[in-house]
Amino acid sequence: MSSYSIILYGFILIALISAIGILAVNNVFKAALFLLTCLLSLAAIYVLCLAEFVAVTQILVYAGGVVVVIIFGIMLTTKLTGKPLEVKNGNLFPGLLAALAFASMLVKYQSMMATSTAELSTMSENLVSKTGVELMTNYVLPFELAGLLLLMALIGAAVTTRSTPE
């Protein structure tokens, strides 16, 4: 087994364990930290899959932005009640059953798709500049729409949390 595979398997293992960790712990804050670990190890996996740009975005936006926002959310909501951060479970059996069904079904059929392995060299050169060119040519419309989406999310979040009733 090459060192590459060992690293890949390692990160896959970390991602899986931390994902199950979110499910297993009853403390919201710990769950957020598990989410952070999971997202960071996914970023590492993206690097190993030669998607460096996505990996950097994952670290900057997901791990740096989303998780921080979620932790803020936890802080704000717990501060309002003063209750501990415990989370209760419900629907345990249907939940696990659905998850198992999905997992087995997807693993069974999706693993059939893992046939060919691609050449590494074809995609690796000048990835960032290629991404930029793609974003401004073929993907310029979704790119602009994403800008609009961010603007509306900003306005929406501001409108939603505005406390003074008009």
């Binding site: 994902a19 979110i22 629907n91 939940g95 893992a114």
Partner: peptide, 28 residues
């Protein structure tokens, strides 16, 4: 690059996410 473990990873991540959505009683 080995694709198979990555497929298994994504399937399990999805299933775990779904389980969390169904089981956990906290919106966050």
């Amino acid at each position: 690059i080995e694709a198979l473990p990555l497929h298994i990873l994504s399937a399990f991540l999805f299933a775990t996410g779904l389980a969390i959505v169904i089981i956990k009683r906290n919106a966050i």
